[in-house]
């Protein structure tokens, strides 16, 4: 298909004997924001580091912007932009020098560099900091500079590894705004994140990854709808017994327990199911301590599919 810009097929990676990613396949369409969502240690960074050529391609086939990752690494490198997980800036260079150096190692012409630097500094609102040393920038500004650097060469795909890790809420919000406007200008974005809100708000498609495999993927809406209509959280005097009792009650699609809560996914309208649940438990002398009913969020999707809270 013509509009597939990143095609990953049967990709696996192992560190020695330890398998980090096993046999994953996915496709990213031109112009979309595609997120890899997963807990720490799920294999997200291994995938992205392989795609950006920092790790060798061990097995599988990957095409990026029409180039084969295994045999056309230089071409791939020319076609992509990268924002690394950790800050990778030279604190002893100024903002302008940072972008200029990047343009140089990608062999951009002087005119091209000058124009691009002006455009990008405006985009990430660092015009007034152009001649400031990186060392004197705030964390958010550094991130913005890295995004600008990643866009310096007008890449076909921009790769971001945990773009808002360690940033305060306002700065995260601002970073999302920049990423959205970059995307609207036509850059395809592939990013990894362990923040559900980030994946939910930004992405056109999400692949949920855990233990080195893609568990589920789809649009944020599809993922949330896949869970059913409503999610009910119960805290009861005895969750184990409560779960046994409620098994068989019609209208419940699924139940699971963790962290002292019982998560119930309703078949249809949860507000009609809840009274039944309460009455049923009452008849069996189980007292309900707390109730929470809501539409499924990305957190619920995550917990449903990985069975865990976020690991750090």
């Amino acid at each position: 298909m013509d509009d597939i810009i990143l095609n990953v097929s049967h990709f696996s990676y192992a560190y020695g004997d330890m398998k980090a990613v096993s046999d994953i396949s996915f496709q990213v369409r031109k112009g979309e924001i595609f997120s890899f969502l997963g807990p720490n240690g799920a294999g997200k960074s291994t995938v992205i580091n392989s795609l950006i050529t920092l790790l060798p391609l061990q097995s599988g086939t990957v095409t990026i912007a029409g180039y084969d990752l295994g045999s056309e690494r230089s071409r791939v490198r020319e076609s992509i932009g990268i924002v690394f997980q950790q800050i990778t800036l030279d604190k002893d260079m100024t903002v302008r020098e940072t972008l200029d150096f990047h343009g140089d190692i990608y062999r951009m012409s002087h005119e091209e560099k000058t124009t691009r630097i002006r455009e990008l500094l405006r985009l990430v609102e660092l015009e007034e900091k152009a001649d400031t040393l990186v060392n004197n920038l705030s964390g958010g500004m550094k991130r913005r500079l890295e995004i600008a650097r990643g866009l310096m060469t007008r890449p076909r795909v921009l790769f971001l590894d945990e773009p808002t890790i360690g940033l305060d809420p306002q700065t995260r919000q601002k970073t999302w705004d920049y990423l959205r406007s970059v995307n609207q200008e036509g850059t395809t974005i592939f990013m990894t994140t362990h923040y559900m809100d980030e994946a939910d708000l930004l992405s056109d498609h999400i692949a949920l990854i855990d233990h080195g495999t893609i568990i589920v993927h789809g649009t944020p809406e599809e993922l949330k709808e896949s869970l059913g209509n409503d999610v009910i959280y119960l805290e009861t005097s005895d969750n184990t017994t409560a779960q046994q009792i409620l098994t068989g009650l019609s209208g419940i699609r699924e139940m699971s327990r963790y962290e002292g809560k019982l998560m119930i996914i309703s078949e249809q309208d949860g507000t009609r199911l809840l009274p039944d649940i309460m009455r049923y438990l009452g008849e069996h002398a189980i007292s309900v301590l707390a109730v929470n009913l809501k539409k499924p969020s990305m957190d619920d999707v995550f917990m449903h599919y990985t069975g865990t809270e976020m690991r750090d």
Binding site: S74, I82, T88, D90, H102, I105, Y106, R107
Partner: peptide, 16 residues
């Protein structure tokens, strides 16, 4: 220093 905290990744992932 570039390797541990700096821009070596940027250089190594570039076509240079």
């Amino acid at each position: 220093f570039d390797k541990n905290w700096g821009i070596l990744r940027e250089i190594l992932a570039s076509p240079m």
